[in-house]
Amino acid sequence: MKQPVKNTDLEKRIFAASSVNFTELAVELFHFQYRYNEVYRNYCNTINILPDTIDTIRKIPFLPIQFFKSHEIKTTFFEPAVIFESSGTTSAFNSRHFVKDIAVYRKSFTACFEKFYGQAKNKCILGLLPSYVERNNSSLVFMVEELIKQSDNNLSGFYLSDYDKLLRTILHNEILKQPTVLIGVTYALLDFAEKHSMQLRNTIIMETGGMKGRREEMTRQQVHIQLQNNLSASLIHSEYGMTELLSQAYSKGDGIFHCPPWMKVLIREEDDPFAIKTAHILQKKPMTGAINIIDLANIYSCSFIATADVGRLYSNESFEVLGRMDNSDIRGCSLMAL
């Protein structure tokens, strides 16, 4: 089978996606990945999916996210420009994302950030991601580092665990009314807020999740209440992304996330990996279950991923993340032996 070097035309159309043409692009991308992604094709064949029958989003099979721990998920043959890796206690069991073209990732997170927050150059971008910066293969660190580079503010940067310096920077920006975005891993934001109470008016606090074993696990609501109390912030923002994706969703408060036009969340039954719920579309009611994600930007990996997260999807396509599945080894993962 002759392998295309790149599908430049599809790349361009993906970032022009809308509710009007999303299904068309997703179906086209399914056929592209079925043809040129051996792992995904074998998975589809094993669960008896006939590619010619795929003409709607809900017929597309979603690859269990655990496959990223055991297989090289690639669409077309290529030497990766970068390999992003998830955090974990044992590197042998971490997810790996083989990225063919880092420009696609850069385009995705830049366009998404601008959609929700405007251009990074007009903001001071502060990163509080100590456990991530210690690694050299974090997709989150890459994204924040690029946003810092795009910023025109010379105080933008990573602050690791230097909370005193971070405090001085934030207070300086507050006095000047400089729009600031503090992007931090949850446990570090909690540590900082407990040490330095203040009143923020020009600073967006954005948590990315994760205690990394540093603190007792808390719900997102508990985290937000604590941060709001210590920082006198009206709302706490959130970023929802993962190593296996090239797109992110953002919440501007209350843990309600919104996707960019080239990303979509669906809900499946927790005990049936192949059953996509549709009730909310017909009844305009929220649905709860396991989260499936379509990430059209993941063109050279797999765009259709069954995650280990549980969520609630609303009729306007916003969603909440409620936690992890009790057994994160999603049914269907016995097929990883493919």
Rank of each mutant, 00 (worst) to 15 (best):
M1E: 07
P4I: 02
K6T: 05
T8V: 08
L10V: 13
K12C: 09
I14R: 04
N21W: 06
N21K: 04
L29A: 08
Y34I: 10
Y34C: 07
R35H: 10
Y36H: 12
E38D: 15
Y40I: 01
R41I: 04
C44W: 01
T46W: 03
N48K: 12
D52C: 15
D52M: 08
T53N: 13
T56I: 06
K59E: 07
P64Q: 07
F67N: 01
S70H: 11
I73Q: 01
T76F: 10
F78I: 04
A81D: 12
I83C: 09
F84W: 08
S86D: 02
S87V: 12
G88S: 02
A92L: 15
S95E: 04
F98W: 10
A103W: 14
V104M: 07
C112A: 15
C112Y: 09
F113G: 07
F113K: 03
Y117I: 06
G118C: 06
Q119Y: 15
A120I: 11
N122R: 06
N122H: 10
I125D: 11
L126Y: 06
L128S: 00
L128P: 03
P130T: 01
Y132V: 02
E134G: 01
E145Q: 12
Q150S: 10
D152A: 13
N153Q: 08
S156W: 00
F158L: 02
F158M: 00
Y159L: 00
D162R: 13
Y163L: 06
L171M: 13
N173T: 12
Q178C: 00
V185R: 00
L189G: 02
L190I: 12
L190E: 01
A193V: 04
H196C: 08
H196R: 05
Q199V: 15
T203H: 00
I204H: 11
I205G: 02
I205M: 09
E207W: 02
M211I: 01
M211C: 00
R214S: 10
R214A: 13
R220Y: 14
V223W: 03
I225M: 02
Q226F: 02
Q226V: 07
Q226A: 10
L227C: 05
Q228M: 05
S232Y: 06
H237T: 09
M242T: 01
M242Q: 01
L245P: 00
L245A: 07
L245R: 05
Y250P: 04
G253E: 09
G253N: 08
C259W: 04
P261Q: 08
W262A: 00
M263C: 06
M263L: 05
K264F: 04
I267M: 10
D272A: 08
F274P: 02
F274I: 12
I276S: 07
K277T: 05
L282Y: 13
K285W: 03
N292E: 13
I294C: 02
D295W: 10
D295R: 03
A297N: 03
F304E: 11
A306N: 14
D309C: 11
D309K: 11
R312I: 12
R312T: 15
S318A: 06
F319Y: 06
G323C: 12
M325Y: 13
D329N: 14
D329F: 13
